[in-house]
Design a protein around this nucleic acid. Structure first.
Lengths: 266, 266
DNA sequence: TCAATAGTGTCTTTCAGACAGTATATA
DNA sequence: TATATACTGTCTGAAAGACACTATTGA
């Protein structure tokens, strides 16, 4: 059940050396699906969680809003045996998601947090052809959000309030409602035990700015004092550091902080 | 970037009604990957977390252990326009995972917990052809585990101790080490805030049996009294109920309980 | 009676939510 | 000085870890 030998029978394959086997291997001719990385791109603007949506100009779901997405670039195996093994199979799935993110937002690669969400593979979810959608979610800092190209007319991308969208009952294209709901659920859960909130504030931020991000994501208020205590714990644990300078917004001068991004340990 | 119109130009598509568009739609001829549901099937036997592995009989990775898996059945669109829309695109991705699970274990569908884990899509992860692996993990009750066919010779499946496997440094086929590690990490995290432990005990169980499952999954011990308190809270919250009967294992008679599976709310 | 398991009570720490009040800036 | 924002201290309750002890059964 788990082995596939293409046009080689199992017995033949088992008696050959690996390099020989691979050189002789032919892809089975069964139909394959398209694989599409779709993106749920979030930011927080005006203490409100927003998602980047495009308006579909063609069928199907013409006129509906949709999540931006694209297709995974796959390369076929070259005919000559000389190329195998180690031939170029195309781009990594994650690289495709990063590429799409950069194309859709116009932001440089690596400027946003990106993580895989879930893979959606119901038959018929795209009426044109069989498509497996690997959904990713991305977090864009509010300082970068206004730079996102809001309307090169190929696909006019807009920041849409998630709450307003849910309240309106507007239906998205394909199964994108389901994808969006799952993404919101994911970040609401994840913000409690991982530092994703720091990818939704500017590089330096005040306590209240961080609190407002929590409130926007969770869709509820936090007691400022209780939040301050959580903040002080993070400071004590060296998760955040005091940054130079300060900020003022109508009252007392506020300390600004910086997230102490943990170094990748090798 | 996000729209695909196959062999129809964008402008043509935009001026047609949806049914017409779909009838005229032709699949673009770009290469596609295979999509493979791979399974990380866990059980707990002798207070030890086990995973079901097969031994590969053919290239590549001949002789290595691997996770069981298969391929998603995809149907191509019929040529005649009469069939569109609503033609059969093949099986749902999740259905493919359930099917594979039933095939690999010999257990009836629906007898195990199954959940999507992550999608692995590095180029070159399968040297034969481009494969996107959608990994799922499954939980098999210890009462069912011995029924799993341990050696129909196509792919001799075995319950392997996860800890022993990690300690041995044995390398699995493909990127299955990475998949297994992520699956273990997932259930270790998830057991703390969701009722997956109840899918790793018999239908009725004692407090200590449930504790042993936690210990096996988390790879650490729990203070029996502290665990008992957690258990009493679940009883108070009606998460579990006292079941008829009792069990005895060499000492005092133990009460048996049943998980009060929450009904799916419509 | 002994061994083995089942089950309970209490202390301590940690953390979150909910409360009122002080400090410092602009206008 | 008035007002808006930044920041602090304390009480309470929920839950987890770590401790010693009692209860019931089979051998």
């Amino acid at each position: 059940m788990s082995d596939v030998s293409g046009k080689l029978s199992h017995a033949e394959g088992a008696d050959m050396a690996e390099a020989e086997f691979l050189a002789a291997y032919k892809v089975r001719e069964y139909p394959r699906p398209s694989v599409a990385p779709d993106l749920v791109i979030f930011t927080v603007l005006d203490t409100d969680l927003k998602v980047l949506l495009i308006r579909r100009k063609g069928h199907p779901f013409r006129g509906f809003r949709a999540l931006p997405g694209g297709f995974l670039n796959v390369k076929e195996r070259p005919e000559g045996e000389s190329h195998a093994p180690g031939w170029d199979q195309g781009e990594d799935l994650e690289a495709a998601a990063h590429r799409e993110l950069a194309e859709e937002t116009g932001l440089p690669e690596g400027s946003c947090y990106l993580e895989q969400l879930y893979t959606f593979g119901k038959a018929g979810r795209d009426p044109r052809t069989r498509v497996i959608s690997v959904a990713y979610y991305a977090l864009v800092r509010p300082t970068l959000a206004p730079l996102v190209v809001a309307g090169d007319d190929a696909d006019a991308a807009d920041w849409v309030s998630v709450q307003a969208l849910f309240d309106s009952g507007e239906k998205l294209a394909f199964d994108h409602d389901e994808i969006l709901r799952m993404a919101v659920q994911r970040i609401r859960g994840k913000i409690d035990y991982s530092p994703i909130a720091f990818d939704l504030v500017p590089d330096t931020f005040t306590v209240n700015e961080l609190r407002e991000v929590y409130e926007a994501v969770k869709g509820r208020t936090y007691d400022p004092k209780t939040f301050h205590r959580k903040f002080r714990r993070m400071l004590a644990d060296n998760v955040i550091q005091v940054a130079p300078g300060s900020r003022i917004t109508g009252g007392r001068r506020a300390t600004v902080y910086r997230f102490n991004r943990p170094q990748a340990q090798p």
